[in-house]
Amino acid sequence: MPEPFAMKPALQFIVLSGAGWLLDFCLFWCAIVMLGLPPGPANVISATIAAMAVYLVSSRLVFGRSEASGKAMFIYLLYTEANIALWALAITVLAGLLAAMMAPIHAALVAKILVTPLSLTCNFLVTRFLVQRGRLAR
């Protein structure tokens, strides 16, 4: 039976996700500033790299899974891409709205920051579910 929501894993995941978010944000910034990509595609690239890194590390360190299940990782990758597409759309719309008030690059960065809390929450819940489901299947 899955454990009820526990604060320690949630806090560990937040700290680890914070590091992942910094990686994501740095890659996002490089993609829009240095490569000139629009916010949506930049987010797809940066968030995919960061989300998979956080999944691999958190499944071991936060959720105590010594091996990564290929099936769970594939499901997480599918979830990640759908999730990223949703957040990329949200970032694009928000950046468009904010561009009336600030430079487009700043609008994209602010939009990325605004969607982060919801994205982080979704990622924690899905990762926890997949890791616990994998434990139950053994």
Rank of each mutant, 00 (worst) to 15 (best):
D24K: 04
P38V: 05
E3W: 14
S59I: 11
V115W: 00
C122H: 08
L136A: 12
G18D: 03
S119C: 11
P39V: 03
A19P: 05
G64F: 14
N43Y: 08
T92F: 09
G18A: 00
A103I: 13
V115K: 05
A95F: 01
V93Y: 04
T92M: 06
A88R: 02
N83R: 13
L61N: 08
V15E: 09
L130E: 02
A53G: 12
V110H: 05
W87T: 10
V33Y: 14
V57T: 11
G134N: 06
W29S: 09
C30N: 14
R128D: 02
A137V: 07
L114A: 10
F74T: 15
V115E: 05
V131P: 00
V93C: 00
R128W: 01
V54M: 06
L35P: 07
A31Q: 02
M1E: 11
Q12M: 14
P104S: 03
A50K: 00
N83I: 09
D24S: 06
L35G: 09
L98F: 04
P39M: 01
R65C: 13
I49F: 12
N43K: 07
A50E: 00
L27Q: 07
L23Q: 10
L120N: 03
A111Y: 01
L35F: 14
W87I: 09
T92E: 09
A31V: 09
Q132R: 11
I91E: 02
S46K: 02
M52G: 05
A68V: 14
S66F: 15
A85C: 08
L125W: 10
G40D: 06
A47R: 00
G96H: 03
S46Q: 02
R133D: 09
P117E: 08
Y76N: 05
V93T: 06
T116F: 10
L16E: 04
F13A: 02
L109T: 03
V54H: 02
E3M: 15
R133I: 08
F5A: 14
M101C: 14
L11W: 09
A10N: 10
G64M: 11
V15Q: 11
A107E: 01
I105P: 12
G18K: 06
L98D: 01
S17Y: 00
L23E: 07
T121M: 12
I32Q: 04
A88L: 00
P104F: 00
L56V: 13
G70F: 06
A47H: 07
P38L: 10
A95M: 01
V54W: 06
A47P: 06
G20R: 03
V54G: 00
L94M: 04
G40T: 04
R65P: 11
L125M: 12
C26T: 15
A47Q: 04
L125D: 05
V110R: 02
M101A: 15
L130C: 01
W29Y: 15
V15C: 12
A6Q: 14
F5Y: 13
G20T: 02
M34W: 15
C122P: 00
L120K: 05
A6K: 14
V33P: 13
M73G: 10
A51F: 08
Q132A: 10
M1F: 12
S66M: 15
